[in-house]
Design a binder for these strands. Sequence first.
DNA 1: CCTTGTTCCTGTAGCTGCTACAGGATGTAG
DNA 2: CTACATCCTGTAGCAGCTACAGGAACAAGG
Lengths: 129, 129
Amino acid sequence: MPIGMLSRKTGVNIETIRYYERIGLLPAPPRTAGGRRIYDDGHRRALAFIRRARELGFGLADIRALLALARPHGESCAQVERIASAHLDDVRNKLADLARLEHILAETVGKCARETAPTCPVLNMLDPG
Amino acid sequence: MPIGMLSRKTGVNIETIRYYERIGLLPAPPRTAGGRRIYDDGHRRALAFIRRARELGFGLADIRALLALARPHGESCAQVERIASAHLDDVRNKLADLARLEHILAETVGKCARETAPTCPVLNMLDPG
DNA sequence: CCTTGTTCCTGTAGCTGCTACAGGATGTAG
DNA sequence: CTACATCCTGTAGCAGCTACAGGAACAAGG
């Protein structure tokens, strides 16, 4: 199948597919006589794998490692788990940061609605006096 | 004060201060005869403002707008509030996304610990079968 | 066979928000 | 007067794409 169809099937942008090939994340497919890429179902699965991993927030370096570990099926689960739980830690840290953010912002914007302050509550919070 | 002291006082990297100047976020200070930047307390306050706003997740475009609105004190609070609450929406969306992520990852990594699956649970979830 | 329209190709540059050099000039303390 | 810290400019790099420009290839209709 040509790149456009692969793009439609996986929901990954054509430019992004070529980008993944360029950085060596997705294997380069064979070409037609005219030079167009022809993909098979193996490529489709690999790209779908990458896409799901991206949706879960894994970085491309992690995904590269995961793809490598996905080949010899069976023994390397411990390594996979290490990558995944490191990423989970990361996500939890970001979550905590964002929650703190949300709290402060919500509070400050809330003051705007109550309209009791003489100066803008948002600028007030940002201004170091 | 020279740039290094400003950096220490605000916790903003020297390179970042120069970067802010280059993109027109922080006004260019006067220089010594030898060409070194000399900052005053106004610069310090502006930079501290920028820093707090960055910590709250505002983008540089938003900060540029906020800085402009911070000058004519008093009337433009509505615009400030619009920027802040748009950002708050953004933060809440990201928060929801991350929470979903966290849930899926935690569940999957949890399966690894229970060790009952024949194949790696993480790879299993990523693999589109 | 020829045209039209779509798809595809390569290569480069842009985005955000910094950070990290290289290679040199300047300021300050002993 | 010499060290040494601090500063200068300019460029290039990071993630992870996205958006062109300028051209070639293919499928379908006449």
